[in-house]
Design a protein around this nucleic acid. Structure first.
Lengths: 336, 336
DNA sequence: GTGAAAGCGCTAACAT
DNA sequence: ATGTTAGCGCTTTCAC
């Protein structure tokens, strides 16, 4: 590997002049500069980012920790993060935790050892350990931006969707279509954003003088199989729902599966609305009506906030709330 | 940031003894070792991976370059790569090229500057520029393992599916169901693996004494919209296909969309088989019959081959061919 | 506009 | 079992 000394020798200047050509070209005379550039090209010189990091304490790496890359929600987020990062000369270190808390924690350790400049953290659940981890990162002055989820008790930066509003609008939509008996296939309520979705649902019922009933809510995990099971349980408990608000498209896939098995027709027998608008929701039969989250923007803006804060050398504090948008397809029908 | 000198001072040993504790603990006396570890913990010491890389010329980073992270084929690959890498103390730098050749090339430059240990490269198309890029990497002694696709003229390491065989089996399956007029919705034939799929199809026809007809093949890009368009073109050209072999599930989604619009019933009017078995193919209506590729294994093994070769300090040369497996669902029916 | 010296934190190589 | 020396390739600082 050729280095600045080798070039310096050939160009008969000091290595510092070579260094300047690549960092502050204006400080070097035109002639010298051109000579050095020409020699550098000739020798195929490439500055060592490692040596640079060693001195500057900046690596131009950011970490991206995701709970489940198989959920089509996240690839779009990845795309947004990667696009912004690459255009700004940062690279993304991806870690998929598969919802394993151990992996999440140890990744942070690794990131610190690697001198990473900042972290985008998705899928934080909000338990005691999560809170501790987040506080620890803040205390160590490592910039963290949360995406998709956040922890109310920790004053961190995040990019999320307005979940209360999205759930409110989804429920309003169903009510407008004449539905009053609306079941909920819920993701874990201990996670704040899913709790917010329940809040939005409740508020919509209230505004329409419909009584909220605890037994209309059934809770599961945010995976396809659990959508199936949770929906099944809900139907076994209560009869005669005309509509369901599912908290994520991923779970709705399970609902569709169950309906197919039991020849329950969507939307003739039951209307379904959910949230996310992940890829292929449009390709279900019938195409799924859902509150689309701005996934690409979520990733893109998280990267922007993070990198801006790194450049300013201070912890990020921006909290961005994106709007969800109703995508009306064919899984809901008017009744009554 | 505390370093080995600080610890050495406190422990009244040389910095080398501290270094040894973290690299060759056996070479250090038990008592000294324990003392050093205790002080290190107390001070919250973490070895700087950057300084380490500076000396050893190893970063423990591998690059993963993918053409389209939105295609659900790739998240599974990512998961495989990430799992193997993490367990072996490597981290993955992800780049999504969106099929932009410029991004692919410049990523390699960045990787080289960053002193990355090796690269897993997906979605290489096989054109002149791709060939040059690959040869350049090999010449620079940077280990590269290709996944999903390969270039026959370059003697590189890769992990792919046996595409000839998979297409052969898919076609055989259709023939066994009584189909003889089988159309092809093809991905770009200039890419070797898709050409191989055509070869498999042809071979199956030949073995069953069915004449191959050029006009039964229609070519598009590997995205949903193109699946729609290509299928449409194919039907406009030729009438009366009883079955279609689609070269990827992604394109099949487009076929389903077209069929829905034109109320063509799958499998009553036409049978569809394809390749990949991406997530949600099982959730289409009817569930898609397809040749499942071993996506996780592809990623996992590519990472294994790459990291093995890095550790042995030689370029990877292993070429692994995985089998596809028929997943019989409901998009094909028996006729005649 | 250019250069000399020092040092980032670590490990390889060679001592003892 | 432990220590000494040198140096990885770069940038910061200060000097001219």
């Amino acid at each position: 590997m050729t280095n600045i000394y080798e070039i310096a020798k050939k160009a008969e200047v000091s290595h510092m002049t070579v260094s300047r050509v690549f960092n502050n070209p204006d400080l070097v005379g035109k002639k010298t500069r051109e000579k050095i550039i020409s020699i550098a090209n000739e020798l195929g010189y490439r500055p060592s980012q490692i040596a640079r990091s060693m001195r500057t304490k900046k690596t131009n790496y950011i970490g991206l920790v995701l709970p489940d890359i198989l959920n089509p929600f996240f690839p779009e987020v990845v795309r947004g993060v990667d696009d912004y990062a690459r255009r700004n000369k940062y690279n993304v270190i991806l870690v998929n935790t598969d919802n394993d808390y151990e992996v999440q924690t140890s990744s942070m350790e690794v990131f610190i050892n690697r001198g990473i400049d900042g972290v985008i953290l998705g899928g934080i659940a909000g338990g005691k350990k999560d809170t501790e981890l987040l506080n620890k990162m803040i205390k160590k002055d490592i910039p963290v931006v949360l995406i998709d989820r956040f922890i109310p008790s920790v004053n961190s930066s995040y990019v999320i969707t307005d979940n209360v509003k999205a759930a409110y609008e989804a429920t309003q939509y169903l009510v407008r279509l004449g539905h009053r008996k609306i079941g909920i296939v819920s993701s874990p309520q201990k996670i704040k954003i899913f709790h917010d979705r329940l809040l939005g649902y409740k508020k919509a019922l209230e505004d329409n003088d419909i009584e909220f009933r605890e037994e209309y809510v059934c809770e599961g995990e945010e995976v396809v199989e659990s959508g199936y099971e949770t929906f099944k349980k809900l139907l076994e408990k209560i009869n005669g729902f005309t509509a369901i608000f599912s908290m994520s498209d991923f779970m709705s896939f399970g609902i569709y599966k169950y309906c197919k098995e039991k020849t329950i027709s969507i939307p003739d027998d039951i209307s379904i609305i959910s949230m996310d608008d992940i890829f292929t929701s449009a390709h279900l039969n019938p195409p799924l009506t859902t509150m689309a989250q701005q996934k690409y923007e979520m990733g893109y803006n998280a990267a922007k906030i993070l990198i801006d804060s790194i450049r300013k050398n201070k912890l990020p504090d921006k909290q961005l709330v994106l709007e969800a948008k109703l995508i009306e397809r064919e899984s809901c029908r008017k009744i009554g």
